[in-house]
């Protein structure tokens, strides 16, 4: 993964289970701008994270502090937060989850 790709996103999954893998980029700006996808090395995939542990807000003290950043989403009236400090390791950058009947991937 590019170490500088600091961006959190939430994607709808359709019949796919997503897993992280280490992609090492060479001259990414040039290869991307040219419209070609040219990773110089693709490592083996990490185990996919599925059915992650989800806790209610009143148990949050163990997991997150007031000023830590979270990626937040509301689906079907159900809010959920993904603390960024749990997503930063390459083995963690993709969380396959379900919320309000929707399959989603929280990515970093």
């Amino acid at each position: 993964m590019m170490k500088s790709d600091f961006s959190g996103s939430l994607f709808l999954r359709v019949k796919t289970t997503l897993t992280g893998l280490a992609v090492f980029w060479g001259g990414i700006a040039l290869s991307w701008a040219g419209g070609e996808f040219r990773p110089t090395k693709v490592a083996n995939a990490f185990p996919a994270i599925m059915n992650p542990v989800i806790v209610p807000a009143d148990e949050a003290e163990k997991f997150v502090e007031a000023d830590e950043l979270v990626l937040g989403v509301v689906i079907g009236g159900l809010p959920r937060a993904y603390p960024v400090n749990m997503l930063t390791n390459p083995t963690r950058e993709i969380i396959n989850d379900r919320l309000g009947g929707v399959a989603l991937a929280a990515t970093w």
């Binding site: 992650p52 542990v53 989800i54 806790v55 997991f63 959920r80 937060a81």
Partner: peptide, 10 residues
């Protein structure tokens, strides 16, 4: 809200 309850990585 609910939240992801995993260990911190940073």
């Amino acid at each position: 809200t609910t939240l992801l309850g995993m260990s911190r990585t940073s």
